[in-house]
């Protein structure tokens, strides 16, 4: 048994979307499908504005709603904790899409592609990998994990904001990082939407930047200055 988990450190993350594209490159997902996304959040009003970039991916919940909602038993949880959609069993009912409170399951009724039809890249190496009209989602790159490789987004993250490993193994990179950050910066990992009680394995560390802003009091900037 193991508990594979991804930790995203929001201090390190710069919101560059390298993960988004690395995932597309790795998984060959069709148009409009992004297993890894980055939410670009802005909060407040000028000048007291905060920006937060939140990389989102499948949380591989221990109590996964998509799995429970699937009427076809196509979604399963491996002993190592990875939740997968069996592409052969899935019948594209679409229940899991609504079931996931994070919106991380994707079902495109008919795939649209990026390149011209005669391009070998998509024709021979991307399209054949995919079943049609099935739900898809992030697999933690299970096919890479099975070869002892890190997921593509982890490998591609230019700020190493993503750390992957087995939470039950104290020697894994993720366990060590959690312990290190606990003692050095006092940050505790947290989950998204704890109220949904999905018990995710993907977890986050908060941003350290203060994100204060300073501008002369309201009004004076409205005056046009030349």
């Amino acid at each position: 048994m193991a508990k594979l988990a991804m930790l995203v450190d929001l201090t390190r993350c710069i919101g560059c979307d390298a993960c988004t594209l690395a995932c597309k490159q790795e998984n060959g997902t069709p148009m409009d499908v992004f297993f890894a996304r980055v939410l670009n959040i802005e909060a407040g009003t000028f000048p007291n504005v905060k920006r937060v970039y939140l990389p989102v991916l499948c949380n591989h919940c221990e109590d996964a709603p998509c799995l429970k909602g699937c009427p076809n038993k196509a979604i399963f949880r491996r002993p190592d904790g990875i939740v997968l959609i069996d592409q052969d069993r899935c019948r594209g009912t679409g229940a899991c899409v609504a079931a996931c409170p994070y919106g991380n399951v994707y079902l495109v009724r008919s795939d649209r592609w990026y390149l011209n039809e005669d391009e070998a890249y998509e024709r021979d190496y991307v399209k054949p990998r995919l079943n049609q009209n099935v739900a898809r989602k992030c697999t933690y790159c299970a096919h890479r994990v099975d070869q002892s490789l890190d997921p593509a987004c982890v490998v591609a993250c230019p700020t190493t904001a993503r750390i992957f490993g087995d939470l039950e193994d104290p020697e894994s990179p993720v366990s060590k990082y959690v312990a290190e950050q606990r003692s050095e910066t006092g940050r505790e990992p947290f989950h998204l939407l704890p109220e949904a009680k999905t018990v995710p394995t993907t977890c986050y560390l908060g941003p350290m930047a203060e994100q204060a802003s300073s501008s002369v009091p309201d009004g004076s900037f409205a005056e046009v200055k030349r």
């Binding site: 939410l39 909060a43 937060v52 939140l54 409170p101 998204l192 939407l193 704890p194 908060g206 941003p207």
Partner: peptide, 15 residues
């Protein structure tokens, strides 16, 4: 709509 929920949840958590 789900992203909005996540965003609000996150902001509550970190700030």
């Amino acid at each position: 709509h789900k992203s909005q929920r996540i965003a609000e949840g996150l902001l509550r958590t970190i700030d």
